[in-house]
Amino acid sequence: MDGTRTSLDIEEYSDTEVQKNQVLTLEEWQDKWVNGKTAFHQEQGHQLLKKHLDTFLKGKSGLRVFFPLCGKAVEMKWFADRGHSVVGVEISELGIQEFFTEQNLSYSEEPITEIPGTKVFKSSSGNISLYCCSIFDLPRTNIGKFDMIWDRGALVAINPGDRKCYADTMFSLLGKKFQYLLCVLSYDPTKHPGPPFYVPHAEIERLFGKICNIRCLEKVDAFEERHKSWGIDCLFEKLYLLTEK
């Protein structure tokens, strides 16, 4: 054995408090879109979701699917093309516009009456609605409950000090017999300040354990050449399924 860690023996890093005071403002996230600093976007979609999607959907149609901090995630069109209703929230209007443009979807925009100064973008087909606002303002819009949440790049982007508020927001959107698919990253948080932030299993239990059954479905090596600039040499991604207790 050469000592290389595999996707099945990932350790939890003990120094989980080192990132707790890290803060990125909404304006800084918007600047990332304006300046093209969106390496977190996956042009081909998320491979773990693609692998498990049909198993999760079980042939159902007409589900309501929520994408927190959606950006221009191509997976939104995957669900819409399968007959589901997609709702996303994203602070960057540019990111939302790029989604519709890159997916060749016509759309309209209208003000969100409950949140002055914000807009919702709706596909002409009517099954994709993307709200351009802070996720913490979203419950004011009465958008209803969801059958499924796809959380990739959301919890790991939320400032650590806001995670409890974020989890409570997610709980307010969950319908009966929900499936909450959650991706988190595992790396040494003493070497990279984030975002994306390190979210250990214990944190998921703390945030969601009282209401959800929590199961880790898969762990994969997600390290890429660009991650060397973070000062790390190891990065794993974990896919969790959260269901109603």
Rank of each mutant, 00 (worst) to 15 (best):
residue 2 D to P: 14
residue 3 G to P: 13
residue 3 G to T: 14
residue 3 G to D: 12
residue 4 T to Q: 07
residue 5 R to V: 14
residue 5 R to D: 07
residue 6 T to L: 08
residue 6 T to S: 14
residue 7 S to R: 12
residue 7 S to Q: 14
residue 9 D to Q: 02
residue 11 E to W: 11
residue 11 E to K: 12
residue 11 E to V: 05
residue 11 E to R: 10
residue 12 E to V: 06
residue 14 S to A: 08
residue 14 S to F: 04
residue 15 D to W: 06
residue 17 E to R: 10
residue 18 V to K: 02
residue 20 K to I: 05
residue 20 K to M: 14
residue 22 Q to R: 14
residue 22 Q to T: 05
residue 22 Q to A: 04
residue 24 L to P: 06
residue 24 L to M: 14
residue 25 T to E: 12
residue 26 L to A: 07
residue 27 E to K: 04
residue 27 E to W: 08
residue 27 E to G: 10
residue 28 E to H: 11
residue 28 E to R: 08
residue 28 E to K: 14
residue 28 E to V: 11
residue 30 Q to W: 04
residue 30 Q to K: 02
residue 31 D to F: 07
residue 31 D to T: 14
residue 31 D to R: 10
residue 31 D to S: 13
residue 32 K to N: 08
residue 34 V to D: 10
residue 34 V to P: 03
residue 34 V to E: 07
residue 34 V to H: 09
residue 35 N to Q: 13
residue 35 N to G: 11
residue 35 N to A: 14
residue 36 G to L: 07
residue 36 G to A: 13
residue 37 K to T: 13
residue 38 T to Q: 12
residue 39 A to V: 08
residue 39 A to Y: 15
residue 40 F to C: 07
residue 40 F to P: 06
residue 40 F to L: 06
residue 44 Q to G: 11
residue 44 Q to M: 10
residue 45 G to N: 05
residue 45 G to Y: 08
residue 46 H to P: 08
residue 46 H to G: 06
residue 46 H to S: 15
residue 47 Q to C: 09
residue 49 L to V: 05
residue 49 L to W: 06
residue 50 K to D: 09
residue 50 K to N: 12
residue 50 K to H: 01
residue 51 K to L: 15
residue 52 H to T: 10
residue 53 L to C: 06
residue 53 L to E: 07
residue 54 D to P: 14
residue 54 D to A: 09
residue 56 F to K: 15
residue 56 F to H: 07
residue 59 G to C: 07
residue 60 K to N: 13
residue 60 K to D: 07
residue 61 S to I: 10
residue 62 G to V: 11
residue 62 G to D: 04
residue 62 G to Q: 08
residue 62 G to N: 15
residue 63 L to D: 02
residue 64 R to Y: 02
residue 64 R to P: 01
residue 64 R to H: 14
residue 65 V to N: 01
residue 66 F to T: 00
residue 66 F to P: 00
residue 66 F to N: 01
residue 68 P to D: 01
residue 68 P to L: 00
residue 69 L to S: 12
residue 69 L to Y: 05
residue 70 C to N: 02
residue 70 C to A: 03
residue 70 C to E: 01
residue 74 V to L: 05
residue 75 E to K: 04
residue 76 M to F: 01
residue 76 M to G: 01
residue 77 K to Y: 02
residue 79 F to V: 08
residue 80 A to S: 11
residue 80 A to L: 08
residue 81 D to H: 04
residue 81 D to A: 08
residue 83 G to E: 03
residue 83 G to F: 04
residue 85 S to R: 07
residue 86 V to M: 01
residue 87 V to R: 02
residue 88 G to V: 00
residue 89 V to W: 04
residue 93 E to A: 14
residue 100 F to L: 06
residue 101 T to S: 10
residue 101 T to W: 08
residue 101 T to V: 14
residue 103 Q to W: 11
residue 104 N to V: 05
residue 105 L to R: 01
residue 105 L to T: 11
residue 106 S to V: 13
residue 106 S to N: 04
residue 108 S to R: 12
residue 111 P to D: 13
residue 111 P to K: 08
residue 113 T to E: 13
residue 114 E to R: 06
residue 116 P to D: 12
residue 116 P to M: 09
residue 118 T to R: 13
residue 118 T to A: 10
residue 118 T to M: 08
residue 121 F to I: 05
residue 122 K to Y: 08
residue 122 K to R: 11
residue 124 S to Y: 11
residue 125 S to W: 14
residue 126 G to V: 06
residue 126 G to F: 07
residue 126 G to Y: 07
residue 127 N to S: 15
residue 128 I to S: 01
residue 129 S to E: 08
residue 130 L to I: 08
residue 131 Y to P: 00
residue 131 Y to I: 12
residue 131 Y to R: 01
residue 131 Y to G: 00
residue 134 S to A: 06
residue 138 L to F: 06
residue 139 P to E: 11
residue 140 R to S: 06
residue 140 R to K: 09
residue 142 N to H: 12
residue 142 N to S: 06
residue 143 I to S: 02
residue 143 I to G: 02
residue 144 G to E: 08
residue 147 D to I: 00
residue 148 M to T: 06
residue 149 I to A: 05
residue 151 D to P: 01
residue 151 D to M: 00
residue 151 D to R: 00
residue 153 G to A: 06
residue 153 G to S: 06
residue 153 G to P: 00
residue 154 A to N: 01
residue 154 A to C: 04
residue 155 L to I: 09
residue 155 L to G: 00
residue 155 L to H: 00
residue 155 L to T: 12
residue 156 V to L: 05
residue 156 V to A: 07
residue 157 A to L: 04
residue 158 I to S: 02
residue 159 N to R: 07
residue 159 N to Y: 06
residue 159 N to E: 06
residue 160 P to Q: 03
residue 160 P to A: 08
residue 160 P to T: 03
residue 160 P to C: 05
residue 161 G to E: 07
residue 161 G to R: 12
residue 161 G to I: 07
residue 162 D to C: 09
residue 164 K to D: 11
residue 164 K to E: 13
residue 164 K to N: 15
residue 164 K to C: 13
residue 165 C to H: 04
residue 165 C to T: 15
residue 166 Y to R: 00
residue 167 A to Q: 05
residue 168 D to T: 12
residue 169 T to V: 08
residue 169 T to P: 00
residue 173 L to Q: 04
residue 173 L to G: 01
residue 174 L to R: 02
residue 174 L to G: 04
residue 174 L to K: 02
residue 175 G to E: 04
residue 175 G to L: 07
residue 175 G to A: 13
residue 176 K to D: 15
residue 176 K to C: 10
residue 178 F to C: 11
residue 178 F to A: 10
residue 179 Q to R: 14
residue 179 Q to P: 00
residue 179 Q to M: 11
residue 180 Y to K: 00
residue 183 C to A: 07
residue 184 V to L: 13
residue 184 V to G: 05
residue 184 V to R: 02
residue 185 L to I: 09
residue 185 L to G: 04
residue 185 L to E: 12
residue 188 D to E: 08
residue 188 D to V: 02
residue 189 P to F: 07
residue 189 P to N: 00
residue 189 P to H: 13
residue 190 T to S: 14
residue 190 T to Q: 11
residue 191 K to T: 04
residue 191 K to C: 12
residue 193 P to L: 08
residue 193 P to R: 09
residue 194 G to W: 03
residue 194 G to L: 05
residue 195 P to G: 04
residue 195 P to W: 04
residue 196 P to F: 01
residue 196 P to R: 05
residue 196 P to M: 00
residue 196 P to L: 03
residue 198 Y to C: 05
residue 198 Y to H: 03
residue 200 P to A: 06
residue 200 P to V: 03
residue 201 H to K: 15
residue 202 A to E: 15
residue 202 A to K: 15
residue 203 E to W: 02
residue 203 E to V: 11
residue 205 E to C: 08
residue 206 R to D: 04
residue 207 L to E: 01
residue 208 F to I: 02
residue 208 F to G: 01
residue 208 F to D: 00
residue 209 G to V: 07
residue 210 K to R: 15
residue 214 I to R: 01
residue 214 I to W: 06
residue 214 I to E: 04
residue 216 C to V: 11
residue 216 C to W: 08
residue 217 L to Y: 14
residue 217 L to M: 12
residue 218 E to M: 13
residue 218 E to L: 07
residue 219 K to C: 15
residue 219 K to N: 06
residue 220 V to E: 13
residue 221 D to I: 01
residue 222 A to W: 03
residue 222 A to L: 11
residue 222 A to P: 10
residue 223 F to K: 02
residue 223 F to E: 02
residue 224 E to P: 02
residue 225 E to T: 10
residue 226 R to Q: 15
residue 228 K to A: 09
residue 228 K to D: 15
residue 228 K to C: 10
residue 229 S to I: 02
residue 231 G to V: 05
residue 232 I to L: 10
residue 232 I to K: 03
residue 233 D to L: 05
residue 233 D to C: 15
residue 235 L to D: 14
residue 235 L to Q: 15
residue 236 F to P: 06
residue 237 E to V: 06
residue 239 L to C: 08
residue 240 Y to W: 06
residue 242 L to R: 00
residue 243 T to A: 12
